[in-house]
């Protein structure tokens, strides 16, 4: 899932300076699950904004709304009223949702309320970690199910590098060396010998490096679709 975290409230308040009526818009997708942008967080952020502005002597009206998914634009229909009423929107969906608001309501000012961080897993209550970078050309089959792109600090294809020690990466004793994990996994499944082969430079053209990406599935497209 996409993991996001609330922006510092000061930053949100700064963007809202001068606005009189604001809508805080949540999303019931990933950001609800990672407790950053669901209905509850909408309530919390809205209260914070109202109280901060009240005590600063610049009261603001804050409307609250949460949709199923901000990355499926049809859901914005449900909150059209409050969006139209507000003079600025704070979306606390991931960056996709914020842009969804901007695209759907081209004349509205929209601000991000979260920092969208990574695609990751929930390891423990309150702990998430990155697992995939969406490189568009998955190599997990050769790396024993541990991603070298996301989990090696240098995205090396032929690790571990000389900085790997005691299972940790050279960048920090708190970061596991991704390649040590790959090594351990491949050992467990009896394929450690495969590390003897040189893995050629990765084709990054399927990644962000190839420019903004788009997926079109003809099998699914509707004639009426965009």
């Amino acid at each position: 899932m996409i993991i996001a975290n609330g922006k510092p409230i000061e930053e949100v308040l700064k963007s809202l300076e001068g606005h009189k009526k604001v809508a805080v818009l949540g999303c019931r997708g990933c950001v609800t699950v990672c407790l950053a942008g669901g209905e509850k967080e909408v309530g919390i952020l809205a209260s914070q904004i109202r109280m901060a502005r009240e005590q600063a002597g610049q009261p603001v009206e804050v409307l609250e709304g949460t949709v199923e998914r901000q990355c499926d634009y049809e859901y914005f229909e449900q909150v059209k009223d409050i969006i139209e009423e507000a003079d600025a929107i704070v979306s606390i969906a991931c960056g996709v949702g914020v842009q969804g608001v901007a695209e759907t309501f081209p004349e509205k000012v929209v601000y991000p309320g979260l920092n969208t961080m990574f695609m990751g897993a929930n390891l423990n209550v309150g702990v998430w970690a990155e697992r995939c970078q969406g490189c568009g050309n998955c190599v997990l089959e050769i790396s024993g199910g541990v991603c070298p792109v996301a989990r090696c600090s240098k995205s090396l294809m032929n690790g571990p590098c000389g900085g790997s020690q005691n299972g940790k990466c050279e960048i920090s004793k708190d970061v596991d060396c991704g390649w040590q994990l790959i090594y351990d996994r491949l050992s467990k499944i009896g394929r450690v010998d495969s590390l003897r082969n040189i893995i050629p430079p990765k084709d990054w053209s399927t990644s962000r490096d190839g420019g903004p990406r788009k997926l079109v599935r003809e099998d699914l497209q509707l004639e009426s679709g965009k």
Binding site: G43, I44, S47, M51
Partner: peptide, 11 residues
């Protein structure tokens, strides 16, 4: 109890 309750009460 949740942050939401406390904030709503104060607000």
């Amino acid at each position: 109890v949740d942050a939401l309750f406390l904030l709503k009460a104060l607000e």
